Computed example of a mutant assay.
Amino acid sequence: MSFNLRPHSIRARFTLVSGIISLIVFAVIGTGLDLAIWTRIQDNIFKETERVATDWIGSLQPGAPYPPVLKTRINLLQLVDGQGRVVAASTAAADQAPLSTLRPPNDDRIAHDTRCTTRDGCVVLTAIRVPPLETRVLWQGQPHFVYAGMTEPGMLSTHELELLTSGGVLAA
């Protein structure tokens, strides 16, 4: 007994071709939508981490830097010296190694990164080189870096966004 999957009528062939084309179009739209949402979420995190880090840099005084008091979802904040030692940190980042080894150069003081480990998951962070004036006044010119970050949101780390988008594409 042979089973033929190829439709014989023009109407059936047209329906099959239009279904395949629709699936391709919706898949492209879904991929674009997924990338746009993912980029927007990550950009918002980078903006917030940059704001928190620059606010803390602006409040640093000569002497021992005080740990920051955070009232945002950005809970990981560290001041790291040029040798990679954590000088001051928020409560959530106090007993950790530096959040990153990323060192922004003098001409571009701000860099963004996503650091992933198997133990802690992914951390979305911003690294900022303390400006030269503050570096001279506070630490006799020794470079310092501020890292501000947060654990990657569940929607991005668990691939929930991709699953929801795929489900929407298949439903459409």
Results as ranks from 00 to 15, higher is better:
5 L>T: 06
6 R>N: 12
6 R>M: 06
6 R>P: 01
7 P>G: 12
11 R>K: 10
11 R>M: 03
13 R>T: 03
14 F>I: 10
17 V>E: 01
18 S>K: 00
19 G>I: 09
21 I>G: 05
24 I>M: 10
25 V>K: 02
26 F>V: 07
27 A>M: 13
33 L>Q: 04
36 A>K: 11
43 D>T: 14
46 F>G: 09
51 R>N: 08
52 V>F: 00
56 W>Q: 09
58 G>E: 07
63 G>D: 08
65 P>K: 08
66 Y>C: 06
66 Y>E: 15
70 L>E: 02
71 K>E: 12
71 K>I: 10
74 I>D: 01
75 N>M: 12
77 L>M: 12
81 D>R: 00
81 D>K: 03
86 V>Q: 08
90 S>L: 03
90 S>P: 03
92 A>F: 00
93 A>C: 07
96 Q>D: 11
99 L>P: 02
102 L>G: 10
102 L>N: 11
106 N>G: 07
106 N>C: 03
107 D>W: 13
107 D>V: 06
108 D>M: 10
108 D>F: 12
110 I>W: 01
115 R>S: 03
118 T>I: 04
122 C>I: 01
123 V>S: 00
124 V>M: 01
125 L>T: 06
133 L>K: 03
142 Q>C: 04
143 P>N: 05
144 H>T: 11
146 V>Q: 02
147 Y>K: 03
152 E>W: 02
155 M>W: 13
155 M>D: 07
158 T>Y: 13
161 L>D: 11
161 L>S: 10
170 L>N: 09
